[in-house]
Design a protein around this nucleic acid. Structure first.
Lengths: 342, 342
DNA sequence: AGCATTCTTGGGAGCGCTCTCAATCTGTAA
DNA sequence: TTACAGATTGAGAGCGCTCCCAAGAATGCT
């Protein structure tokens, strides 16, 4: 059975291809009776318009891409990404869009994928996860003229539309919380080097300390890279410098840090207080429930889709951005509840 | 700047559209000099053929879909899925395919997504994660004639091409391992009710016990649903029945189970031995390293893509399946190392 | 009734590509 | 020289849709 076409339906009902097309696309200029007949025929036959032909004729595909650059290696380990993807999927489903996933795992992939992205007639727009400053993908993207929304603040942020949370403020709030609880040697475990997320969270941490007239001690700043293991290693490297509290740039790293502390026979929050970032489900499930900064992760995805749609439809200029709110979730790991109890 | 077409390149070089098309598609029937000239022009202009036009003319899109049915709710929490997705992405990249992601989160999504999947000219084929037996998606898929490979054994397995691991054998091996270590009251925490994965793993568990002439005790079989929390709950519900070992159908649930045991002041493996399933990175990172059944997760994805490509190109009949090997990774949680040391 | 206006409909020209078929050109053998 | 096989090329007909335009039907107004 060959695939049905508009023409087939038209013949069946006894109208023209154009009329069927109008019905399919919800044009108002069709008489009610004819519309009903055509709709019935479509229902009975199970006709679906051919997407390729539609795209070719209308120059629109109703497909958007989600690009995860090579420099975003935590995709496979950090629960952040599945949640983000879910938010994006919800946005796509709500708007009758399809989502194309481009996972760049190495240089060759990148060379293969770029043409597929920029190849006209493939994608109406793309969502790109912000990675490292030196990621060559961003440059290549700027050169292609496809509508694009960046997830997380990109480096040259006036060239791109983007969605982000206020990482500086969030990190400030988290650190301030530790200061207010009376901790004196507050360390931080950062995210991957070279990303804006990481820089912003460090900035917030530094701001809070500076405001409280603490001295910024470089040996209390340990570099992680958003993985559990890196959190473990970073915490280990921090221990000789005797921090009494640590602000950690992701919950996944925080769980690594907790493991390191357990291995060293230290207790959270009695010996060292912790604050994480993200509020992934795990945060509420660990033995010591994690105080953390909640990001509205799925909403970031959904909002990004909406911004992209607006961009595609109205080609708005200049680039805009949306900053979503975060919220400090106080649980046990920061010692706030401990202090109350005492 | 309007998008370039074959015709533009042809005009530039002074040949016909057909010749340029031949070069683009690597046809051998082009003289070396002309080929070089055309290639040069393509390089200089950065021309990319329009995907929609190609699809329309050739009836091939070079896009495959990954469908995650509503009944697969663990997508957002279980690290299994990002790893699987990575394997699929690698397979796609290697074969110049694009991957379209369809996350079904509710009934409305399903109704919206099905037409997008079956709509001709959109997808060359699809990969579907096997979910519950009563998932209506599978029926709808059987009716659509799009090439399809199922990830995990589907219920009516002679209707579908599928990739799976031998869950029965793997669960048997894991349980047998516990039997061999001398445990007497071996419990199990199962996966979500109604999926083949779950049934198969229970079957392997039962087989091993039966073979060893153990009595199958229903109160030692606790129902989980692949989430951390469900592992926690299931373990709690198991405790009154005093198991001395538990075979758990996923590592994520195992980490929930460990948490439950810690909360109850019990030690792994001294008080209760555990064996998990999957070998996600977490398994080697917990304080008590998890003995588990390793699945070659990314390979499942890559292999599935290869099978799908073969299906698309050769329309092979009847449906085939590939069963990949698993491997028991012995670490600390089963007590094997403990016994050795003693 | 006569005319302007709006609604509804069909026809046609693409969108940019693939693919078949026929035309041309080259070189070789008779 | 003529004929013919094989390589190379171009022309043309779609693929199934959208969208513009014009024709015809229906309505409203004076």
């Amino acid at each position: 059975m060959a695939e049905l076409t508009l023409e087939d339906i038209a013949k069946q009902v006894g109208v023209s291809r154009s009329t069927v097309s109008r019905v399919v696309n919800g044009s108002p200029n069709v008489s009610p009776e004819v519309r009903l007949q055509v709709e019935e025929a479509i229902r009975v036959t199970g006709f679906h318009p051919n997407a390729a032909a539609r795209s070719l004729a209308s120059q629109r595909t109703r497909v958007i891409g989600l690009v995860l650059p090579r420099s975003v290696s935590s995709f496979f380990t950090d629960p952040f990404f599945p949640q983000l993807t879910q938010g994006i999927a919800v946005g796509c489903n709500a708007n009758d869009l399809s989502l194309s996933l481009f996972l760049v795992t190495n240089k060759e992939d990148e060379d293969k994928i770029m043409p597929r992205i920029s190849r006209s007639g493939m994608l109406d727009g793309i969502l790109v996860q912000s990675g490292r400053a030196d990621d060559p993908l961003m440059d290549r993207l700027t050169n292609s003229r496809i509508p694009c929304v960046v997830l997380g603040r990109p480096f040259n942020h006036d060239c791109f539309n983007y969605i982000d949370v206020d990482n500086v403020k969030a990190a400030y709030t988290a650190t301030k919380h530790l200061i207010d609880l009376g901790y004196k040697r507050i360390a931080t475990i950062t995210g991957s080097h070279g990303s804006t997320v990481t820089l912003d969270r460090i900035e917030g941490y530094v701001n809070a300390l500076t405001e409280a007239e603490y001295i910024i001690n470089p040996s209390l700043i340990a570099k992680g890279e958003f993985s559990e293991t890196s959190g473990y290693e970073a915490m280990k490297s921090l221990l000789p410098h005797k921090p009494d509290a640590v602000f950690i740039a992701s919950d996944l790293m925080a769980s690594g840090a907790i493991r390191a502390l357990q291995d060293s026979g230290l207790h959270v929050p009695e010996d060292i207080a912790l604050v994480g970032f993200d509020d992934i489900p795990l945060a509420a499930l660990t033995k010591i429930q994690l105080t953390t900064v909640r990001q509205p992760i799925p909403q970031i995805g959904t909002k990004a889709v909406e911004l992209l749609i607006d961009l595609i439809e109205n080609n708005t200029q200049p680039p805009r951005n949306f900053i979503l709110d975060t919220e400090l979730i106080v649980r046990d790991s920061c010692g706030a509840n401990l202090h109350q109890k005492v």
